[in-house]
Design a protein around this nucleic acid. Structure first.
Lengths: 202, 202
DNA sequence: AGTCATATGGTAGTCACTACCAAAATCTTA
DNA sequence: TAAGATTTTGGTAGTGACTACCATATGACT
């Protein structure tokens, strides 16, 4: 790896770190990108070469985790769908757990700031569609409509579990591990602990 | 109702209609709020008194539909949760179906424009949390943690069904009705047609 | 050292959005 | 209906995110 890439990596990290620092000190809305650029000792135009938007500064890590999980799943061999879903869910949580403070910071910012929350939800939505695309490849092709429908619903359920687990997890002092929560969620769903709409009995 | 409110209502509709017109003609990104204000023959400051953001112009109808459904559910008597979930889902779809062209336009814009999609997802997320708050009131209070968890997952599932159904519905020539799709989704979920993650058999 | 590719900082500009104020329209009451 | 109170409106000035563009600086290669 040449010096160029080393520097690029360093600058990128520096910008993101300074950004989180300023956001947590002064709040997202009361921090300007100029201030971030100044703190990282780069020009604003450089900052925008690294990050697409102010919100992107916050969400890059989450984006990477989700993208990684989709890639990873893409390379997995064929397996039964329930196992596959469980595997992606756990993969995402493992990725996120690599940096718990960052995740907490992200969700704190999202809770306080509408535009961050919106971009986060957008990210999540994209993950869901990517996952659905991946799932549909593993479903029978005789009735494409049905398979797309099933894939979309399945991806939604996986996403739902991840999202719910993470939200609980970030609000919890670090005694709980995300994967245990996820397993609990899956058990609740499979055993009827969570009521499915339209089911005959409660 | 005084003349004031009549005019307010008229102006509000006029602005939104002109906005959709311009967006569909020139695209969201290539339309400025000044142009919209000019087309509706009001000043930009007036436009901003009616709508919070450019995206809000697009999403007001969806927002109203979701808000209505939460309100409506809030007033419903106690019922078994599966029936309740089914009821909210159908209520939302009924509301949305009141104005199919608008919904299609909204989702078209969301597909083309990131910021619209982000705001839409944000709206959906808020609906999900509101619904979860409502559900938790109807669950046992002996283990609040568990009830919150179940409520969040249930609300997510309901939202998932609504979202999936609507996305299919807007892409479909109007031969299909949303409620029928929703019932199909519910049946798939309850009968194991959709694989639940971690289930023992596929 | 010299040349090439890329990274950087700065400038100028667009546009969404806010705060504020004076004028116009509507409502109220005598 | 006239006068006053209240709400609605349009305009001005400004902030800040973001883009396009260009000249300069910096690391890469021979």
């Amino acid at each position: 790896m040449g010096l160029r890439e080393v520097k690029r990596e360093r600058t990128r990290r520096l910008i993101a770190d300074k950004a989180f620092e300023l956001f947590s000190d002064n709040g997202f809305g009361r921090t300007t990108v100029e201030q971030i650029a100044a703190a990282a000792e780069v020009g604003p135009s450089t900052l925008y070469r690294y990050f697409p938007t102010k919100e992107g500064l916050v969400l890059e890590f989450v984006d990477d985790c989700l993208a990684d999980a989709v890639d990873w799943f893409h390379q997995q061999p064929a397996m039964h769908l329930p196992d596959g879903l469980r595997a992606v869910i756990e993969r995402v949580l493992e990725q996120l757990e690599r940096n718990p403070e960052r995740i907490r910071a992200v969700f704190d910012l999202a809770e306080q700031t509408g535009s961050v929350s919106a971009h986060l939800n957008e990210l999540i939505w994209r993950f869901r569609t990517d996952l659905a695309d991946e799932l549909v490849r593993r479903l029978p092709t005789d009735d494409p409509r049905r398979s797309e429908f099933v894939a979309a619903l399945s991806a939604g359920i996986a996403m739902n579990i991840i999202e719910t687990v993470v939200r609980v997890w970030v609000d919890t002092p670090d005694t709980v591990e995300a994967k245990a929560l996820a397993r609990r969620a899956m058990r609740l769903l499979c055993t009827g602990g969570v009521p499915l709409p339209g089911a005959q009995d409660a």
